[in-house]
């Protein structure tokens, strides 16, 4: 059995080494936190004080500034997970499964937040907390998929083995998500032909678009920051587990 002892230290390989990854990305965390905080401050200011209330929906329209970015993230995070899953399966990149593991609970949280704000918004506008509308239904199913993936991660003792299996499941899920979306849309349009909620939406004045845009970036950067921190935590957790195992063996012998 031979060992390749000539490591190629390009940036890709550096990122592949968990210790190096932590070292390289640690300086990024505080700037990211600051940027996220700044974006949130600006976004919330615009959202609360510098945008008009909707003439129909009143102040409840401001829920949109949380709802729309989280709904976007609910899909974006799944995309991140699917790309990481490819990284695990195809390139066998060790950081890919760390990223996959870190993203799953974040995705579940953002999806839950999107559903929660959606139903808060639905109460005054539709008159009910829950409407079996195509988007809300497929978001709910997406939440179930996220929670299933989190449960799958937790069920394994060996995280390296878990990574590959979760990666396969994530990719099969990624193939399925468009099918689910399509089927749910087909189903909901047949049930309620005259929807209160039109897909193209009303024309949005700039005063609404500005805070929406800022909040959109704020949430995206929030995700990136949390993802990075969660990845660092995961790398450290694995290191602790390895040390503990070594210690246990040392005591035993």
């Amino acid at each position: 059995m031979s060992i390749d002892t000539t490591p190629k230290m390009n940036w890709w390989n550096r990122l592949a080494h968990p210790g190096q990854f932590v070292q390289w990305t640690r300086p990024l965390i505080w700037p990211l936190v600051a940027l996220t905080a700044l974006l949130f401050a600006a976004g919330l200011y615009f959202a609360f004080f510098n945008s008009p209330a909707d003439y129909q929906m009143g102040d409840t329209v401001r829920i949109m500034y949380v709802h729309v970015p989280t709904a976007w993230l609910s899909q974006f995070v799944y995309g991140t997970m699917a790309v990481s899953a490819l990284g695990t399966l195809v390139w066998r990149h060790p950081m890919a499964d760390v990223s996959m593991k870190a993203a799953a609970p974040l995705g579940a949280a953002f999806t839950a937040m999107a559903l929660f704000t959606g139903s808060l918004w639905g109460r005054p506008t539709w008159g009910t907390f829950w409407e079996w509308d195509g988007r809300m239904t497929s978001t709910l199913i997406l939440l179930f998929i996220y929670l299933g993936i989190v449960a799958l991660w937790r069920a394994f003792d060996d995280q390296l083995k878990a990574a590959r299996i979760v990666a396969i499941f994530t990719l099969v899920g990624a193939v399925n998500v468009p099918i689910i979306k399509f089927s749910v849309d087909w189903w909901s349009t047949l049930h309620q032909p005259a929807s209160v909620f039109t897909a193209d939406g009303p024309r949005m004045p700039g005063s609404i678009l500005t805070p929406l845009f800022v909040m959109f970036f704020a949430f995206t950067f929030l995700f990136i920051t949390l993802q990075l921190v969660a990845m660092h935590t995961e790398v450290k957790r694995r290191r602790v587990m390895t040390l503990e195992r070594k210690a246990a063996r040392g005591d035993a012998s």
């Binding site: 199913i141 997406l142 179930f144 998929i145 929670l147 299933g148 993936i149 449960a151 799958l152 069920a155 499941f169 099969v172 899920g173 399925n176 099918i179 689910i180 399509f182 089927s183 749910v184 087909w186 189903w187």
Partner: peptide, 15 residues
């Protein structure tokens, strides 16, 4: 765990 994982993926079949 298997039913929990698979049920959401099977929604289109049901629909």
């Amino acid at each position: 765990l298997a039913p929990i994982l698979i049920a959401p993926l099977c929604v289109p079949i049901l629909i």
